[in-house]
């Protein structure tokens, strides 16, 4: 998997891509709020919202297969929540509540996916800042985005290096423990890298304040 997967279609050129960034942010927030707040008994409204979202994705030329895979990625989490949370109320009410959580999550996710796939990330961050997001948060997100690519690269190299010296499958347990070690090494390497990045920032006069070119 490559991190490009996160926002593969963000540099397209459809009408959705050309809309003003702040308008897109407001539309997305509105869709998420609607998905979260409208009572689930008004299910036709949710159905309409789903149709609108799918239409928006198709206008932006984002393929359905991509959406399915992307939503599938977070489904374990959504399902876990959907079934764990309502169990407190007893089994009788659990099923409708679980369905409500699942529907709301998937709709919100679709709205968010639309936003990141019709706006290049740096422009999205600039838009969010103009909507009042604090600079510190924007800087953190920018770092996250920048180094997602580097960390994924590093992970791919480490996995290739391991595969190059793995001559036969040694059972699932060994595989999992090797994967855990790999992730541990990746964490340590990332911490080292964070230190070097801090040095590089200091070397160019960083004093703890984040400045941006407006």
């Amino acid at each position: 998997m490559s991190p490009e997967f996160l926002d593969r279609f963000s540099r397209g050129n459809t009408i959705c891509h050309r809309l003003p960034v702040r308008l897109k942010i407001v539309l997305t927030l509105a869709a998420i709020l609607a998905a979260a707040l409208i009572p689930i008994s008004a299910w036709p409204v949710h159905g309409c919202l789903a149709c609108v979202l799918f239409a928006a994705h198709s206008v932006a030329e984002i393929p359905v297969a991509y959406l399915v895979r992307r939503v599938g990625f977070v489904m374990p989490l959504v399902c876990g929540l959907a079934f764990a949370v309502p169990l407190g109320d007893g089994l009788a009410n659990a099923l409708p509540a679980a369905a409500a959580i699942a529907v709301r999550s998937v709709l919100s996710l679709l709205a968010g996916l639309w936003l990141v796939n019709v706006t290049p990330f740096d422009r999205l961050l600039a838009g969010l800042q103009r909507c009042g997001m604090p600079r510190g948060i924007a800087a953190m997100l920018a770092f996250m985005y920048r180094y997602t690519f580097v960390v994924f690269d590093e992970l791919a190299k480490m996995r290739a290096a391991r595969r190059a010296r793995t001559f036969s499958s040694r059972g699932a347990w060994r595989e999992w423990s090797a994967a855990a070690q790999l992730l541990g090494r990746l964490l340590i390497r990332s911490l080292d890298r964070a230190e070097r990045i801090h040095s590089a920032m200091c070397a160019r006069g960083w004093d703890g304040r984040i400045r941006a070119l407006e």
Binding site: D122, Y147, R196, I197, A200, A203, R211, L213
Partner: peptide
């Protein structure tokens, strides 16, 4: 640090902004 400019060995450690403009502007802005 204004007088001494440091070029690190690994460009990925030094290019921490997501666009070229932001990265080159980082020093002068500071």
């Amino acid at each position: 640090r204004r007088v001494v400019g440091f070029l690190f060995q690994n460009p990925d450690d030094q290019l921490f902004c997501s666009t070229v403009l932001d990265d080159v502007a980082f020093g002068p802005l500071n």
